[in-house]
């Protein structure tokens, strides 16, 4: 870019083009939506099979997969941050929204277990899934996430009308609509951008 005389109209055009260059950058590649979508899908289906087929919790250790996912996520985020050359306000707000979700989810899990209301867990989890998913949809102006969040809230209500073991199937439906489908759409949007 050369230093030269330029008119007020040139200035405005330059400002507009630079703001668009920064704004149009789409940093969300859907990777973590897919990771968590598939992990929770597997865990919820296995939990359903455990309760429905064996009438007990024998397959519940499958949830240890989430710990593997947490470790992977830490490594992934650490590496991604190192590669980042720009930090936007949307990235920061989105990261905080998901941090709030993790804190609230963790607290809710501990409190419900302590009070012995584990059967409420899936309903509350479905309500909770909707919050960060919807807000991410707003932040990234991405309607599939907003749609997925609304589905989570509808499924949360439905989960109060059916036996506990079937709520795991609702959980799997929720992660497919709220995370897996939007995750693949985000991935393709990210690839098209590059």
């Amino acid at each position: 870019m050369q230093q030269q005389e330029f008119s007020p109209q040139d200035s405005l055009n330059l400002i507009e083009s630079m703001i668009n260059k920064a704004r149009n950058r789409f940093s969300e590649n859907g990777h973590l939506y897919l990771l968590w979508g598939w992990v929770i899908l597997i865990c919820s289906i296995v939990s359903f099979i455990s309760l429905y087929r064996f009438k007990d919790f024998r397959l519940y250790p499958v949830w240890f997969l989430t710990w593997v996912a947490v470790i992977y996520q830490f490594i992934y985020i650490f590496r991604k941050k190192k590669e980042q050359t720009v930090r936007t306000y949307t990235d920061e707000i989105n990261a905080n929204v998901w941090m709030v979700f993790v804190i609230m989810g963790g607290l809710m899990g501990v409190i419900l277990s302590k009070m012995g209301h584990y059967q409420l867990m899936n309903t509350m989890v479905l309500i909770l899934y909707g919050m960060p998913t919807f807000l991410s949809g707003v932040i990234f102006k991405f309607n599939p996430l907003k749609f997925g969040a609304v589905i989570c809230w509808v499924l949360a209500y439905i989960s109060t009308l059916i036996p506990y073991e079937f709520s795991f199937l609702l959980l799997s439906m929720a992660v497919v609509t709220a995370w897996i489908v939007p995750g693949y759409l985000l991935r393709s949007r990210y690839k098209n951008q590059n």
Binding site: Q3, A22, R87
Partner: peptide, 24 residues
Amino acid sequence: QLRLAVMSLLIGVKEAEFTFIKDK
């Protein structure tokens, strides 16, 4: 031109590396 371009880029982001600004 260049100073205005830098400011226009930075006004929309929290922070940016020198290499990002150079590319854009």
